[in-house]
Design a protein around this nucleic acid. Structure first.
Length: 772
DNA sequence: CAGTGAGCGAGCTTCCGCTTGACTT
């Protein structure tokens, strides 16, 4: 038994540290938080100064009892959780939960996992910072109060099982508002003038392009400009050359890694985190949930050595980056390779690609600036005072660009300039061609997952560990969906001046195509409307920043945590009660028109089970008729014609084996009903036009796959079957299923053996049910 | 993986942050 127990948050970290510390130390991990407020109840005693009622997390019971035993048997317990608000709280919860005597507790922290840093930390233990813990408790309690008081209002006023929260509701708001911006955006046309010139020099003829800096709004203006240039002579009026430099981007944080992996590798935010976790566990990279751009001295030195070796001394520039992210807590280093000398690793394709990105970004961040020379050439037009401008850029020294260049979300970047031929003031230029091309102002882009993360980070909302989960939450609640936008064809005009003649032509281009972007759903839009109308302060973009300041005050000891909560809660709770009474139920109801047959009104509205169309009045004697919307239809865009089609379901489209084939649209999409059995339509089938033959095909397909599912059945007991499922073969008796032990061959099982298994597994099941 | 297929109903849903391994019927 070890004299010392060290507890960290992550098992991978525990493994590394144990190597540094020797036999006297046993290093264990808590796997994050071990206690939290009850999931099903509010878990806060409001009357009793907001006293939190913590429970051990169900999946942490085992680890807690293990740690308890180790702690009891150790002379000292070293709490080495992260040095931030959550880390401090985890340590405090551990002391409380494990029941460690105060005299045995040592709190330590280190920001980099090196032997030196850890030994130094051991030499400088401190006690738990209760103020910081209180700041965390305030954060936790505030989030619970906001989430668990507003969500039930949504259940009543909008739809059951919805949710609202300090972070997720702002994320949804950003997406809804971006969609509104796009809707209200009016694209404006303009003309861009570019000219292709030729210059003769002793050593040959060179060509280059120049442009008119101003955009011309009207066709007539563009045409007039070309007319003026028709007889003109062109010459170099001025040359300006100035040095410029580019600097590398700082090393990766969680957010910037997600953005670059999205832009350069096309990874979703969750895929990036999954692969990064694998790299971390394999010891290839440092911790992947961080808001810090800091690199350890050890890493700086290693990067320097590596760059010198690969590219030479001139390429080295050691840089210390400081974080500017709002509310950053900097408990970790930036995300970097653990070994700078490994420019590539073993692993699957995703791991290799993500590692490559991390290695390049880290190395580049420690390299010299790129030195550029930018040249602006003004070109005189003899017939007007307007000037054309040619922009040139020459890389004098590539520096970090040798390794890595950060991508941008803005694809429309232009005017970067190219290489210009040498010129002198007064040189005559020959115009080969001048074009006026019609362009259009660009509508705002919809968010990708990674762009949304960046926006949230800029607002100081959410933490590195929650970016990916937040994005999946708002999709799970169906506030937002990922999808593509098919573009549209747009025609534009081109006018060309060549050989003293102007010609006009029309061309067309595909624009507006977007892939894997976030779109708000009807529910997302309605919930956001409701929250903006009733909880403006909570979903304000600055709410988090405001409360974070107060948490900081608590951490500094200038404020008492439950007094802060009290100041927030009582007015908030009064408001909750008011909204409950005063606000109307949100239905998003819209009149689509009248049914040509019955003359009754047709509406689209939100029901308990989602969007639907309604024929007739809700308050009339005669019950209205309802029909759910198809997938891909939205409340906003659905038309009277669509609604009339929807009321045609369910309907009979033919028969098979002398029984009706009925097509309908249900909770889970379109289906065929035959002989009281349901068969889902494939994505490619349209329930409106589906024919008898195709329906029969679907039924046969399904019967075939069911046949394959069946491994064995018994004549004596037709309620017992051996089936093939997702997790391998199993026994089904009535509606309950039983696992078959791996050691048994499912095909060879006898009825007696099956009954035996059912009995055994049944006992296990009841035991599990009791546990829950 | 396959199954689900309403529209009063009974009772349930929900937050944010820290961390991985469940092993499903």
């Amino acid at each position: 038994m070890s004299k010392n127990l060290v507890i960290v948050e992550s098992p991978a970290k525990a493994k590394t540290i144990e190597k540094f510390l020797g036999k006297e130390f046993q290093v264990k991990s808590s796997f994050g938080h071990v206690r939290d407020l009850s999931k099903t109840k509010l878990g806060i005693d409001i009357e009793n100064h907001f006293k939190p009622n913590y429970e051990i997390l169900p999946d942490k019971k085992k680890i807690v009892s293990e740690l308890k035993k180790f702690a009891k048997d150790s002379e000292l317990v070293w709490l080495a959780t992260d040095e931030d608000r959550e880390g401090e709280a985890i340590s405090w919860h551990l002391v409380e939960t494990l029941g460690i005597e105060e005299s045995k507790v040592r709190r330590i922290a280190f920001h980099e996992i090196t032997k030196n840093a850890i030994l130094k930390a051991i030499e400088n233990p401190r006690s738990i910072n209760k103020q910081l813990v209180d700041a965390q408790q305030a954060r936790r309690v505030l989030d619970r109060l906001v989430g668990y008081e507003i969500s039930p209002i949504l259940w009543k006023k909008v739809k059951p099982a919805l949710s609202a929260g300090r972070v997720q509701s702002v994320a949804v708001r950003l997406i809804v508002e971006r969609e509104e911006e796009i809707k209200s955006f009016i694209s404006e046309a303009y003309y861009k003038i570019t000219a292709l010139f030729e210059i003769r020099r002793d050593d040959g003829t060179y060509s280059f392009t120049a442009g008119l800096p101003e955009k011309l709004k009207l066709t007539d203006e563009a045409l007039a400009f070309l007319e003026i240039c028709k007889p003109a002579k062109f010459s170099v009026a001025n040359i300006e050359t100035k040095p410029a430099k580019k600097s590398p981007a700082p090393p990766f944080t969680t957010s910037t890694l997600q953005q670059e992996a999205s832009r350069k590798l096309g990874f979703s935010v969750s895929k990036t985190m999954l692969v990064a976790q694998q790299l971390y566990e394999a010891g290839k990279i440092t911790y992947m949930r961080t808001d810090s751009v800091n690199l350890s001295n050890h890493a700086l030195a290693a990067a320097k050595t590596e760059i010198e070796k690969l590219y030479g001394k001139d390429y080295v520039k050691t840089r210390k980056y400081t974080t500017k992210a709002k509310g950053a807590q900097e408990a970790h280093e930036a995300i970097r390779p653990t070994s700078m000398s490994s420019s590539a690793i073993e692993g699957d394709v995703s791991q290799k690609r993500l590692y490559d990105l991390i290695w390049k970004r880290t190395i580049a961040s420690q390299m010299s600036d790129a030195i550029l020379e930018k040249t602006n050439v003004d070109i005189k037009i003899s017939t007007t005072r307007e000037l054309l401008v040619a922009k040139g850029e020459v890389i004098k020294f590539d520096g970090f660009l040798k390794v890595y260049m950060e991508s941008s979300d803005d694809e429309s970047e232009e005017g970067k300039g190219d290489i210009l031929p040498p010129m002198n003031i007064g040189d005559p230029l020959e115009l080969l061609q001048m074009t006026a091309i019609q362009r259009f102002t660009q509508q705002p882009y919809r968010y990708t997952e990674a762009m949304l993360v960046k926006r949230l980070e800029d607002l100081g909302i959410g933490r590195p560990s929650t970016y990916a989960p937040t994005i999946s939450t708002i999709q799970k609640r169906e506030y937002v969906e990922k999808g593509d936008k098919t573009g549209f064809k747009r025609s534009f005009e081109i006018m060309v001046l060549k050989n003293g003649k102007i010609s006009k032509s029309m061309k067309s281009e595909n624009v507006g195509f977007e892939k894997n972007k976030l779109f708000p759903t009807d529910i997302g839009t309605l919930v956001n409307q409701f929250l903006v109308a009733n909880f403006k302060n909570i979903i304000d973009y600055h709410f988090t920043a405001t409360v974070e300041k107060e948490f900081d005050e608590i951490a500094m000891g200038n404020k008492i945590w439950n007094e802060m909560i009290s100041e927030f809660y009582y007015p908030f709770h009064e408001h909750i009660k008011e909204v409950l009474v005063k606000s109307e139920k949100v239905k998003g109801e819209r009149l689509l028109g009248k049914d040509p047959k019955s003359g009754k009104n047709i509406y689209v509205k939100l029901g308990r089970f989602g969007a639907m169309v309604q024929l007739g009045e809700s308050d009339s004697e005669e019950k209205p008729q309802f029909a759910g919307l198809k997938k891909g239809q939205s409340m906003e865009s659905v038309t009277l014609e669509d609604a009339l089609e929807l009321f045609k379901f369910p309907r009979i489209i033919g028969s098979y084996e002398s029984k009706d084939l009925q097509v309908g649209i249900g909770r889970y999409g379109p289906y065929i009903k035959h002989d009281d059995k349901f068969f889902s339509l494939k994505k490619t089938d349209d329930p409106l036009t589906i024919k008898e033959e195709r329906a029969i095909e679907i039924i046969l397909e399904k019967q075939q796959s069911e046949k394959e599912k069946l491994i064995k059945e018994f004549k004596e007991r037709d309620d017992i079957k051996i089936l093939n499922g997702r997790y391998g073969p199993y026994i089904a008796m009535g509606k309950t299923n039983y696992k078959i032990p791996r050691t048994m061959d499912p095909k060879a099982l006898t009825l007696e053996q099956c009954l035996e298994i059912i009995e055994k597994e049944g006992a296990k099941k009841t035991a599990r049910a009791k546990k829950k």
